[in-house]
């Protein structure tokens, strides 16, 4: 997939559009009156790249840090540690001030209603961004109407309306149009289709695919729906309690998962075959609290392969195939896990 030639491109097609290295965000929370403070380890040292022109999916359950990652990347909340690079330049650094970065990266939120100003007409909401960047009002409105037409909403009927007069699917189309109004290179879709009905979701997913081709976009697609992620994403990162536990091509990660958590997520999807219903829940219990994550591998208390070594050693992401990396001791050659050496022999 070669992205269209973009005059703003700096590093060439080989350079990732986004590089995240060692990203950390801890939220302190007050506990009672004393000075005793707990820390929510929302994002705790993650690395990933988003290649130019691809769609990277991020999946995981609530509390895994996927939405926090999106907000950190967009600079909506400051990060504690780590590097965020956009086309080779540090976001918010001297070469790429936040304001310039935001012309190139936009976001669509999950709640289509909360993300539109209820007192502003649709066209005013869409044209707000370009006007901030100096586009004359008249032209900004014209462009907004053209964008509305592009996302499938007839401008004559919708441009002058208010958000409450639209359905959820229509509002989400407006949000997509608003994100595109600044002609970004990266669009972060934070559970952008999760709140929609299935038939509307399918329409919006098709729209996203069309727009990606037409505008040469790169997507960061955050979702909890593995079916949707598998359909729309080129690569997938699986997050668990603030860490990336597996990352790789969508077909590899979701077709032949290497991490036991990814496997459990896949097995948790309800079966659509009445003759082969799920008989045993793949995981017991709820996802643990990111305030006090388990030691070692964070998944070990729920893991079918959990061994004493997993509570001691914290596995790092290690390659197990082409572009496919996993953070699991059972998959690491030479690790003290009983399954690890076996896998090494198999591979040889």
């Amino acid at each position: 997939m070669t992205p269209a030639l973009d005059p703003r491109d700096r590093g060439g097609p080989g350079q990732p559009l986004v590089s995240v290295r060692g990203l950390v965000k801890h939220f302190p929370i007050k506990k009672g009156l004393g000075r005793a403070r707990a820390v929510v380890q929302a994002v705790d040292g993650i690395d990933f790249d988003i290649l130019k022109g691809e769609t990277l999916g991020v999946v995981g359950e609530s509390g895994c840090g996927k939405s926090t990652t999106a907000r950190l990347l967009m600079g909506l909340i400051p990060h504690d540690r780590g590097d965020l690079l956009f086309d080779g330049e540090a976001i918010g650094g001297r070469d790429l001030p936040l304001r310039d970065f935001r012309r190139q990266a936009q976001m669509v939120f999950q709640d289509s209603y909360s993300s539109l100003n209820p007192r502003m007409t649709i066209e005013a909401s869409i044209s707000f961004g370009p006007r901030v960047h100096g586009t004359p009002a008249r032209r900004a409105i014209e462009e907004a109407r053209a964008l509305l037409a592009r996302v499938g909403l007839e401008p004559a009927r919708f441009a002058g309306r208010y958000p409450h007069e639209l359905s959820g699917g229509q509002r989400q189309r407006v949000n997509i149009a608003r994100a595109l109004a600044l002609n970004p290179r990266l669009v972060v879709l934070d559970e952008a289709v999760s709140a929609l009905d299935k038939s509307v979701e399918a329409q919006v997913l098709n729209l996203l695919l069309d727009l990606k081709e037409e505008f040469g976009l790169t997507y960061l697609f955050i979702s909890h729906d593995l079916n949707v992620v598998r359909f729309i994403c080129d690569r997938v990162a699986v997050m668990y309690l603030g860490r990336v536990v597996e990352i790789g091509p969508a077909e590899a990660v979701l077709g032949a998962p290497a991490h036991p958590y990814t496997a459990a997520l896949l097995a948790s999807m309800p079966s659509l075959d009445p003759d082969r219903r799920t008989e045993e829940p793949p995981l017991a219990g709820d996802p643990p609290n990111p305030i006090d994550p388990p030691s070692g591998c964070r998944f070990h208390p729920r893991c079918a392969w959990g061994e004493p070594v997993c509570a001691k050693e914290d596995p790092a992401l290690a390659d197990i195939g082409p572009h496919h990396a996993v953070a699991c001791l059972a998959r690491q050659p030479g690790a003290a896990h009983s399954r690890a050496p076996l896998l090494e022999r198999e591979a040889a």
Binding site: M74, L76, L98, R99, R102, R103, A105, Q106, M107, F109, D111, S114, S115, L116, N117, R119, M120, S125, F128, G129, V132, H133, N175, R178, L182
Partner: peptide, 23 residues
């Protein structure tokens, strides 16, 4: 979220308050 979206569009705090918040 629309205030966040306005921040993402690069608007200054004053503009966001004037256009998005006041109303």
């Amino acid at each position: 979220d629309y205030v966040d979206a306005a921040r993402l569009s690069g608007a200054s705090s004053f503009t966001i308050v004037r256009v998005q918040v006041l109303g």
